[in-house]
Amino acid sequence: MTLFEIIILAVIQGITEFLPISSSAHLILPSALFGWQNQGLAFDVAVHVGSLLAVVIYFREDIGEMTQAWVMRGFTSQQTPQSRLAWWVILATIPAVIVGFLFKDWIEDYARNALIIAATTIFFGLLLWVADISASRHKHLNSLNWWQALIIGLAQILALVPGTSRSGITMTAGLFLGLDRESAARFSFLLSIPVILGAGTLATFDLLALNEAVDWQALLYGAAFSFVSAYLCIYLFLNWIARIGMLPFVIYRLLLGAILLVFVLY
C-alpha cells in the first residue's frame, strides 16, 4: 500500500470503530471507488491495535477504578458502582463472544456483501433515530442493572452482521433502555475494549498461521494514524453528543447506504 492508502484506511478504521456509522460499510468504499486491493490481515490487526490503545488510554481512569473495585468488591455482597459496571461489561460481552465464535465462518461467507451492508446501514440507522427521539434518556450509567446490560450485550450480537455498526446498535439499545446519550456512548465504548481485544487476538492467530511477510513500516503507520483518529473521535463524540444528538449520524448513514446501493445495483 502507498502511504496515502495507509492513512486513509487507518483513519477510516479509527473513526468508524466508535461512531455509530458502520466501519465495514466504509472499508468497502475505497475498493469500490478506487479499486484498491484488500489491505490484508496484518494491517487489520495493526489498525485494531491503534483503536484499542486509544480507547484504553482515554478511559484509563475508569478502567483502573473498575478493575480495582472488581478485584476488591466484585465477589462480595458489598458492590460499588464501579465493580457493578465491571460486571455489566463482562456480562454484555459474553453473548457476542459465544455467537461470534460459533458463526464467524458463516458470517464471513454469506453476510459480508455490499447489498447486506447497504441494507443494514440504512435500517439500523433509522432504528438509531427512533431510539434517539422516542426514548426517555434520563438514566445515568450508574443506574444500569444486570438485565439491561444483558440486553445491550444481546443487541451487540447484531453487529456481527456487517453494516450494523457495533457502537451504533449498542447505543441504540442503551437509548431504548432510557440511558442518556453520553451514558449510552460511554458504555458502548467500554464494551468495545474486550471486543476489539478479542477480535485482534483471533486475527493475530490467523496471521501467524499464514506465515506471511510483514511490512512493519506500513503496520506502524496504520496503528499510529488509527490511534490518533480514534482518540480524537472518542473525545469529540462524548463532548458533542449531548448537544447534537444522533440525527447527523442517521442522515449520514442513510446517504452512505444509498451510495452503496447505487454501486450494488448499477
Rank of each mutant, 00 (worst) to 15 (best):
L232T: 09
L232Y: 04
L232W: 00
C233Q: 05
C233R: 00
C233D: 03
I234C: 09
I234W: 03
Y235C: 05
Y235Q: 09
Y235F: 06
Y235T: 12
L236Q: 04
L236T: 15
L236C: 12
F237R: 01
F237T: 14
F237I: 00
F237M: 14
F237Q: 12
L238W: 03
L238F: 06
L238P: 14
L238D: 07
N239M: 13
N239A: 13
N239S: 15
N239H: 13
N239R: 13
W240S: 15
W240G: 11
W240V: 11
W240F: 11
I241W: 00
I241S: 03
A242T: 15
A242M: 11
A242L: 02
A242E: 15
A242C: 07
R243L: 04
R243H: 09
R243Y: 11
I244T: 14
I244M: 12
L247F: 08
L247R: 06
P248A: 02
P248Q: 00
F249K: 04
F249H: 06
F249S: 09
V250M: 07
V250S: 07
V250H: 04
V250W: 02
I251C: 10
I251Y: 04
Y252G: 11
Y252R: 02
Y252Q: 05
Y252E: 08
Y252H: 03
R253W: 06
R253S: 03
R253M: 09
R253F: 05
R253N: 05
L254N: 02
L255K: 00
L255W: 04
L255Y: 01
L256C: 11
L256Y: 00
G257T: 08
A258H: 02
A258T: 15
A258M: 12
I259N: 01
I259R: 00
I259A: 14
L260I: 14
L260M: 15
L260E: 05
L260S: 12
L260R: 01
L260Y: 06
L261P: 13
L261F: 14
L261H: 02
V262F: 04
V262K: 01
V262Y: 06
V262E: 05
V262A: 13
V262D: 08
F263Y: 15
V264I: 13
